[in-house]
Design a protein around this nucleic acid. Structure first.
Lengths: 338, 338
DNA sequence: TGCTGCAATGTAAACCTTTACATGAAAAAA
DNA sequence: TTTTTTCATGTAAAGGTTTACATTGCAGCA
């Protein structure tokens, strides 16, 4: 037995045909006589031949792999979007590989090399910031689609959720419950999506005619810890809100923990909303009222867009914003009478 | 400007040397005259040349990528082990790619093709079950290291945590607090690691001379939901435990939710322990007493083992079990007096 | 001066495919 | 029967590397 994997030549020898015929039998079966096709298939079965993808890509100048570049695989939003991406890719004959950059430009650069070698045909980017340091590479960017936020470079389509509308839904719920003093616990430095959620919140407050004076905005970094911290800082002030609208679920969870630790009850004493609907949200005590991102759909749409790019079809859209849904659970109630 | 990426030939032309010299200037710089090296480096800078990894692997018959095959990227244990893997790989000139199988043999097979093409040099497997259906492929398995549990195939080294010892530590804590009726909420079908945790629990109970009659074992599937379900089922019985030892944190979280939903207080009425120390564990209310897996270390060791395999060094060990630590938080207390 | 040996570089083959073009045989048309 | 067309297959080049081997030029030595 040979130890190295079988090549097309091994198959050709056994089937007693030329390598060209083997190749055709695989990729253009209708171009090859039925009897020959049979012999080739038998030979393939005998040798266990599987085509060398590298040689193939080298020759063809393209591959059928798509690289998903993510700064943080641990993000609770990531995995279900990935499933959407994978299913769609698979249905069109593409495979998916994941590159984890840990927010490190150096690592991002390494993945970029995949494209000069045709190891991957296209890229899905989970960050607005190109992970490859300087923009100079930009001109040679492979077919790319952003997820969550626009990529800071002209003309890269992206798929996200309508953060403004989502945030507005959340704030409108709070207002409908009777809240007038609402604190936005957020973050607007690193992620554009977060900034837009704040704008959505402001818009809702504006529409309800709630004066700027009774609005509170706190900065965090989107982690559980920062939510807890925000509560601590707020309690140093003389005016407290009756509701906390949080930029994401992690922050909301932190806020709830902070409030419970101080002996308050949610939603009796304070109401809290999140954004994202991470799996954890439904398991909190109380369960978290939040805005759901249609994660599977986001993945599916992003991949569809990328596949259009790859087939040189002019993409039908350059920006897809999906509608987020309000998920009402138990962390919101009317404000307490004081 | 050329639109296709620069090749070694472009560099050679500009540097006015042969392609062989360019190749040597890159990989064996000491074999090339300093002045030539300089010219080549300039030419590389001008062209923006980066070697075509596919052509290189094709020629060399090996790559410098390592494939991490995971059935479920969303597993809260996954991401920090991955970081350990990546850092170690990187320090030795290897890159890491992730393949997500979603527990689907078909997808697993696809990733296997990476090896017949030398697209990857080795593999880290996050499951005891080879994701490629039939064992027949087994003979041609690439260099592989398992994580968490042994791979069901002779001679594949693996790195995990000493589940027996961990489980024992947990049960000993409960016994020390005075618990005598302890329920093990677990799972022993799919994952060997889980079966071992149960054995560790039994061993601890045996050592304390606790009779089999006062032991309870419930089956679940390791999800939050199954923990909650187990509580419901237990409350149908006439004898209740005073403590719940759970096979993992997810189950423990479910158990705590189930108990709180019934109006009980943890740890006053019931004690609960988990296993894994997922990030969520410390944010629960009450925070969860659990067994910590040294995730970064697991990743590091697994990669070290794989790198040994790749360099044809006989691996120093074939099984590495790391010591898990008890993390005492607030979900365990003495049993209530009845 | 004439050799030997070494350092630096070049030439060409090999890795495994795909495919344009060439070839040959059989079927169709004359 | 001869000519043309069609179909099935083969030959060889190309894609971008690395490297064994060949070549060249020069220093060191007798």
């Amino acid at each position: 037995m040979s130890n190295s994997p079988a090549t097309i030549e091994d198959v050709a020898r056994i089937a007693e045909v030329s390598i060209a015929t083997v190749s055709r039998a695989i990729h253009l079966p209708e171009k090859v006589a039925q009897s020959t096709r049979l012999k080739v298939n038998q030979a393939i079965a005998i040798t266990g031949y599987t085509p060398n993808a590298m040689a193939r890509s080298l020759r063809l100048g393209k591959s059928n792999m798509i690289l998903v570049v993510a700064p943080d695989i641990g993000d609770p939003n990531f995995s279900s979007i990935l499933v959407g991406l994978e299913n769609e890719a698979r249905a069109h004959g593409y495979g998916v590989l994941i590159g984890h950059t840990q927010n490190d430009a150096q690592r991002g650069m390494e993945y970029l090399k995949f494209f000069s070698s045709n190891q991957a045909a296209g890229m899905i980017l989970f960050t607005g910031i190109l992970p490859f340091g300087h923009q100079s590479m930009t001109a040679r960017l492979p077919p790319t689609v952003g997820v969550f936020e626009p990529v800071f470079n002209g003309g890269i389509p992206y798929v996200g959720v309508d953060d403004l509308e989502g945030a507005r839904k959340a704030v409108e719920l709070l207002i409908a419950e009777g809240h007038r003093k609402i604190a936005f616990i957020g973050e607007n430095r690193s992620r554009l999506a977060y900034a837009r959620r704040r704008l959505g919140c402001e818009a809702g407050l504006d529409a309800a005619g709630i004066p700027a004076a009774s609005r509170i905005v706190m900065d965090g970094d989107g982690t559980i810890e920062s939510g807890r911290l925000a509560v601590d800082q707020l309690f140093l002030r003389d005016t407290l809100p009756t509701a906390f609208m949080c930029v994401n679920d992690q922050t909301a969870i932190g806020v709830m923990l902070g409030l419970t630790a101080r002996g308050y009850d949610v939603p009796r004493d304070f109401s809290v909303t999140g954004f994202d609907d991470v799996p954890q949200a439904s398991f909190m005590q109380p369960s978290l009222t939040t805005i759901r991102q249609p994660r599977g759909l986001i993945g599916k749409h992003a991949m569809t867009l990328l596949l259009q790019l790859l087939s040189d079809t002019e993409p039908t859209e350059t920006e897809i914003l999906l509608r987020p849904d309000l998920v009402v659970r138990n962390s919101v109630g009317p404000p307490p009478r004081r």
